[in-house]
Nucleic acid binder design. Structure first.
Lengths: 99, 99
DNA sequence: TAGATATATTGACATTTTTCTATTTGACGC
DNA sequence: GCGTCAAATAGAAAAATGTCAATATATCTA
């Protein structure tokens, strides 16, 4: 699977902000409602909503609407996609460029 | 290995910018001199230097000085560190939170 | 239908990041 | 030492991102 630079950057945007890492840590405890994340994080509701959008756009998190509640969880497929990129990174194809 | 949110974010800063992904793509061809990266990327020398600093700070790239030249390459250990984080992400410990 | 609640969106502002030009540092050869 | 070349640093401008208060939307309940 080949991804262009822009798409790859969008995936990893999930992990380059401290607050988003904390949200992911909370989601490691299993699926959570936005209101529960909001209680634990010290940010306002619109800020949480903004971060959840970035996390969902990256594919690392998926949302499930249930009535008025949004339930978020870590997407195994999303994480695997990021993993595949890292695996491919280590696969160096030495061009023998001399000098 | 437990990393705090801030340190994790620093590692993944390597991958959340389009230009840095392109630099990593170039480094997949093996170790490269800064001047060679500069030729391929359409950015100025100080901008390249800035991105290389972020890549090195993340641990994903290492630099090797040889005379006036800096040679950069992908660090397998750095990438593995990022991989470990992703592996741990998928390891969900379901807290049975009811409701 | 009206009110209440959960989340998303809008718009403004502050901070951070990216980028540039100009300059400095470090290493080489003369 | 002096000039040259590669890379880093400083400082400023522009762009992107993170944050909030206010508002809108969607859903439930009475």
């Amino acid at each position: 699977m080949e991804l262009d630079a822009k798409k790859t950057a969008v995936i990893f945007k999930a992990f380059c902000d401290e607050n988003r890492i904390r949200i992911l840590q909370l989601l490691q405890g299993g699926e959570k409602c936005a209101c529960m994340l909001l209680e634990e994080m010290h940010i306002t509701q619109p800020t949480l909503s903004h971060h959840m959008k970035i996390l969902c756009d990256s594919g690392i998190v998926t949302g499930r609407k249930e009535g008025k509640w949004m339930h978020y969880s870590i997407s195994a497929e999303g994480v695997e996609c990021a993993q595949e990129y890292l695996i491919s990174l280590k696969d160096i194809k030495e061009e023998n460029y001399n000098e």
